[in-house]
Amino acid sequence: MLKKLLLKTKSKKKNEAASSSLLTLDRLHETLEMLEKKERFLQKKSSAEVEKAKDYTKAKNKNAAIQCLKKKKLYETQIEQLSNFQLRVHDQIIMLENAKATTDTVDALRSGSSAVKAIQQSLSIDDIENVIEEANERTEDMKQIQEALATPFGASAEFDEDELEAELEELEEEELDLPEPPRGTPVMEPSPSATTSSRPPAVASDFAELTRLQAEMAL
């Protein structure tokens, strides 16, 4: 309870300080603007006295011209003072803005550190292990689903794999039972004209197929 009260008090003071610095900055900027306006006004007055002095000089009125130059000097002195005031105000503005920027940076870093700390406190090794275990379970479930989808069903699921294997073995045995041509003896394919003339069409076709198979097995 005491800790919360201290934090609340500290936060209140921080807000008051931030609000006070903003008000001070506004006041300094207003003061600087006022000094700049006054300086411009005095510069106009000084320029006007110079023009008067020129006119009096042309009129051979030496005393009046000197009085105008004296006023010009007074205005210049005031302008110099105003310039110094502006430098002081500028200096205060820069210092206050830098202090505010530093405070804002520290507050941002403190907030980031608190956020990271809160995240770390909300996590634990058990939580991470549970998440990884759950992810592995989901992966295994997805694998089982994919395998189930790949399993044949309907008419394709009714095929007997053993029966298909036996049929394939019979085909392989039939190819092995075919007579082999003598090694080194080239297989001569009969010309179409001779085959057609000496054998019936069906016998000629069977003989040609047998000869082709013998040639392929001799390779």
Score class of each variant (00 low, 15 high):
L2K: 10
K3L: 15
K4S: 15
L5F: 12
L5C: 07
L5V: 11
L6K: 15
L6P: 06
L7N: 15
L7M: 11
K8L: 15
K8I: 13
K10H: 15
K10N: 14
K13V: 08
K13N: 08
N15A: 13
N15M: 12
N15C: 06
E16I: 04
A17P: 00
A18V: 06
S19E: 11
S19L: 08
S19D: 10
S19R: 12
L22A: 15
L23D: 06
L23V: 08
R27A: 09
R27V: 02
R27Q: 12
H29R: 11
E30Y: 07
T31M: 12
T31D: 11
L32E: 09
L32A: 09
E33H: 08
L35M: 11
E36K: 15
E36I: 13
K37C: 07
K38C: 04
L42Q: 03
Q43A: 01
Q43L: 08
Q43D: 05
Q43S: 05
K44L: 07
K44Y: 03
K44E: 12
K45Y: 06
S46K: 06
A48W: 04
E49K: 13
V50P: 01
V50M: 14
E51C: 00
K52F: 09
A53M: 02
K54Y: 08
K54I: 10
D55H: 12
Y56T: 03
T57H: 03
K58Q: 10
K58Y: 07
A59W: 04
A59E: 09
N61L: 14
N63D: 14
N63S: 12
A65F: 05
A65D: 00
I66S: 07
C68G: 02
L69V: 07
L69R: 13
K71A: 04
K71G: 01
K72I: 06
K73Y: 09
L74V: 10
Y75G: 00
Y75K: 02
E76H: 05
E76Y: 05
T77V: 14
T77L: 09
I79Y: 07
I79T: 05
Q81A: 05
Q81E: 11
L82Y: 03
S83C: 09
N84W: 07
N84P: 06
F85I: 02
F85T: 08
Q86V: 05
L87Y: 15
R88Y: 08
R88T: 15
D91R: 11
D91M: 09
D91Q: 14
M95C: 09
L96W: 03
E97Y: 01
E97Q: 06
E97A: 03
N98W: 04
A99R: 01
A99I: 01
K100H: 03
